[in-house]
Design a binder for these strands. Sequence first.
RNA 1: GUCCCAAUAGCUCAGCUGGAUAGAGCAACAGCCUUCUAAGCUGUAGGUCGUAGGUUCGAAUCCUACUUGGGACGCCA
Length: 555
Amino acid sequence: MNIVEKTEARIKEEIVRAVEAAELASPEDMPSVVLEQPKDKQHGDYATNMAMQLARIAKKNPRQIAEDIVEHFDKSKASIEDMEIAGPGFINFRMNNTYLADLVPSILEEAETYGKRGEKRNERIQVEFVSANPTGTLHLGHARGAAIGDALCNILDAAGYDVEREYYINDAGNQITNLAYSVEARYMQAIGKEWDMPENGYHGADIIELGKKLVEVDGEKWADADKEERHRHFRETGLRYALEKIETDLQDFRVTFDEWFSETSLYEGDNIQEAIGVLTEKGLVYDEEGATWFKTTEFGDDKDRVLVKNDGSYTYLAPDIAYHKNKLDRGFDTLINIWGADHHGYIPRMKAAIQALGYEEDTLEVEIIQMVNLFENGEKVKMSKRTGKAVTLRELMDEVGVDAMRYFFAMRSSDSHLDFDMDLARSESNENPVYYIQYAHARIATMLKQAEEKGLHTGRFDGSLLTSEKEIDLLKRLGEFPQIVDDAAVNRTPHRVTQYAFDLASNLHSFYNAEKVLDADNPVRTASRIQLMQAVKQTIKNALALVGVQAPDQM
RNA sequence: GUCCCAAUAGCUCAGCUGGAUAGAGCAACAGCCUUCUAAGCUGUAGGUCGUAGGUUCGAAUCCUACUUGGGACGCCA
């Protein structure tokens, strides 16, 4: 806990104590204390609505309750200068804000761990995201999923959860067979044979290229090879090639995974039969019209779902249930799946599976990522100019850079559609929030460098000199950071962090224009402000790191 | 037809699990560089929170119905 959190906790404790002392509520009836920072500074530094919450319990007028609380409140318990009752019964606290300056040395000491929770929560969370089929390149939907998923993982980790990132490789279905046949066809064509592409083949240029490459590597040795062996080979190489490409794209996008989980591995073990077995034992499986069904309606789904088709093969759901059983068997407390909006209809049956396997419905959380629309020159970009197909993650990365993409994709609540303005993302101006924030960081870097050149960089820190309005604003903002991270983690809302970085940058720019840091005539204040700047710089960097954005020292 | 998400300033969006006069950014208007990066700052203007009900001390927030936009409703993955 930093000094701000400690102070807030102390105020809350004292509110509870005062309520009890005034005999307004017993401990059982005690509402949870809400302490908020009023939007309007006129209302003080903190406010609580406790009196209103108690109105029903104490059966008294809220303003009268507020007076009782204030009467029994010991102001010396926290750095409280003044209290007042306002509006319908708010109690406003005006703080003696000098305590805030203690933040600076503590942030500098914590450095890159500032914002991170000290103690672990002992909760293991697995986040599965991207999981794009290995049959093509990653497009923008995957990119947003990757940006939000990775940011969420960073945030959960910072908030004290044990996090594992996983990518589920759909390497077992028909699509992979099609991929194998497509690679085979391109290989054969590359050595001059007439060979038709499969009906649902992948016609992308990359597969043509792969065909040629395989000829370079192996010559014509596969032309007359045993059919089964040949198919296995093209299947494996096609897969490996596609996965490598995906992994490279993601790495360049600064997203890495702890685990790449293969669907095929579920088939190799007895996992799918086992999972179906568990459901069968519970009487949740039946046969009808030659297929095997899972009674998902028992758990609120619209209709029951097929597990085994009448041709004996599994639907997608069957291995997916086995997969989730596997995840649960690995001992995670919570599973978070990040899915595109087009998969939301799948949630009820997957939640049904989780419950059928004997777990609480909430053990699985599904975060739905809404669609991305690209805009350029004010117009919607439907297709890539280069390929005529959907714009890929790689293309956009080349166009606007990773920082802009990571920030833009994470900056909106995930359940709201995202309009991605390419001109804005590329723009090097204050309109672009990424530049705005990075510029704040770079500005500080410049100041620090000059301070060093002028020999002003060393000196005693005296927090009592940081009392201007802008300095207090900055300090308050700095103090919020751990709580923001915590909120973003608990509510699964990474955009809170992008928002915070922007607000902090805004406070910095505002301070910068109002006050001068480097002042040779005032070395102690200069040293104190330099350390404040270092704390701001560190915090901006930490916040950006959570969402995968770099913090350069110069622009 | 059923289900999910959205609807807040001209535009793009926040709104911290029900609180005070609903906030940012952009666009508009008016200012600020002999001073640490003007890629910045300060100010003004801009709102019936989609509509209608309901819940209560109090609703953008919770409930119901409706309207509009997007998506999903396979023995595809």
